[in-house]
Design a protein around this nucleic acid. Structure first.
Ligand SMILES: [Zn+2]
Ligand SMILES: [Zn+2]
Ligand SMILES: [Zn+2]
Ligand SMILES: [Zn+2]
Lengths: 158, 158
DNA sequence: AGTGCGTATGATATAACGTATCAACCCCAT
DNA sequence: ATGGGGTTGATACGTTATATCATACGCACT
């Protein structure tokens, strides 16, 4: 999957499946999948890239779903807290989760040329952060792992 | 070193040595270690924690070294570009490098309780990001690796 | 029905972070 | 000396994020 992730793909199913999964999970966990929250997830899924909060807010505003920053930030907080979306620290932006099914610790690959972002998974206990934390006696609660560079499509051009 | 990094330590030498190393490196590389740049590095070294650009700017302003955001951002850009300081994406903040001697790919451990930040080192080719990138055919130019959690001093209290 | 509680929204303002731009200045090398 | 590169000063602006207070709604308990 990861090695296909930068490739084009049929995208309608992304949105439909993503929203359906999220809705089901919300039901299971007694979370309120409100209109705004769902719409923000749909926007993230349909753009299929990292989006800034104000970019999302613009769409919401155009649809009459809210016009003030907290509207977007509240929805995004809900989505990220519950694993439906992730925050990309490097970009101050948000992206829909592409592994909604399972609990996971994402790694992001960010192409600086085409701006596409791919989400991979990796055990945080393994790898550099886990090792450094164990050495320091540090308890990791959240790991940010983001690589910036060139995707397979953009690397040859450079 | 890493396992001592959260511990108290004599701190005057941190500042003196850090500035001296940076000055020497600048000489070697024909970089201009101007007053503002040096002072910002000193501030970062003396606070020994991640600081926001505006927090640094406040100090500069108090000392008559500049009062507008670009002053701080320029100095920080110089320091980060040349490896004397690092940007912590998770905090939108900056910290003096604690491994000035060698080229390195830092990993940061950020305590959410006491706000201390420790810099460890690790080969980026190893570990999760490198693996994910190779699988995806992605060329990594910069890797952000930041763990948020509790340091050894704060973990027991929690 | 009435009360209290928790969650979600609405709305305004402000904080925090970061950049664009342009003119002035300084150093120093051709 | 002069011209170009890097540095600085200064103003303005753009972007991202949060604080705060008020309101609405569903739900449980009495
Ligand atoms: Zn898709
Ligand atoms: Zn690309
Ligand atoms: Zn120190
Ligand atoms: Zn701590």
């Amino acid at each position: 999957m990861t090695n296909q992730a930068f490739e084009a793909h049929d995208h309608r199913s992304c949105i439909a499946e993503g929203v359906a999964s999220a809705a089901q999970i919300c039901t299971e966990r007694n979370l309120q999948f409100t209109k705004t929250r769902q719409r923000v997830l749909e926007i993230l899924l349909s753009e299929h890239r990292a989006m800034g909060a104000y970019e999302i807010l613009e769409q919401l505003r155009a649809e009459g779903l809210g016009s003030q920053p907290p509207v977007a930030y509240r929805a995004l907080e809900f989505l990220t807290k519950n694993g439906f979306a992730h925050r990309i620290e490097r970009l101050n932006a948000f992206i829909a989760c592409s592994h909604l099914d399972n609990a996971h610790a994402p790694v992001f690959l960010i192409c600086r040329s085409c701006d596409r972002v791919v989400e991979a998974e990796a055990d945080p206990a393994q790898g550099e952060i886990g090792r450094a934390a164990r050495q320091a006696g540090f308890v990791v609660e959240r790991a940010v792992r983001e690589a910036e560079g060139l995707c397979p499509a953009c690397a040859p051009a450079a």
